[in-house]
Amino acid sequence: MTARPESKVAGVVAPLCVILLAIAFWAAIKWVFDVRDFVLPSPGGVLSAFLAEPWPFLEGCLATAINAASGFAIATVLGIALASLLSLSRVIERSVYPLTLLFQMVPLIAIAPLLVVWCGYGRPAIVASSAVVALFPVIANTLSGLRARPLALDELFSILGASVLVRWWKLALPSAVPSIVTGLRIAAGLATIGTISGEFLAGIGGKGAPLGVLITTALRNFQTDRVIVCVLLSALVGFALFGAVSLTSRLLLGRFLRS
């Protein structure tokens, strides 16, 4: 099936136009109301702030990407493992799941200082903060996927005399893949948010400082243009992580996703 030219226009050109329009709107506001630079720099000002000294930004981008990817990876492994444990027994699930929901209600910004106390400043606390935020959608989606294993196939496995563990590995987990992928997509975005918040609190400055630290530093110096550069770059990190998850799931798991 080939894409028709119109759909390409709709898919690429139209969103691009909207983005350009948004930038134009931004420039217009700046020009019409004559907003001062430290409140709202112009689009050109932001671009030149980046181009004047791109390396610290790119290094920060890389550092943040590594933090977010690590947090995401931990959340993935831990989330699937915990959800699997919960799914093995109704009793365990009923007793533990409310606690995990409660946990989810705790705003991360309240836990982050504790993470600093436990892990110290630097990468461990940042990765932990990223993992904590990304963990719950993985647990919730994996659990609902594991619970929704088709009854018809469950009976087949009963006839075949499959053990609980075999049933989990060969039936529940594969049939939960679509839900797990949904959870991972959400987690990819949240991992980046958790990373930036972690970096605000636990990040260490200096060479190779992550975007969260660059943001706080720039903010202290009223360099709003640099803040906006960092914001856009952190969005890019989140987008890249999300894209990587989507692409991997589509390439590797295509057969799990259609049934």
Binding site: A152, L156, L171, P174, S175, F256, S259
Partner: peptide
Amino acid sequence: YCFQEPRLLPW
């Protein structure tokens, strides 16, 4: 046991 439906694992 052969069910009324094939009950194959789609993946």
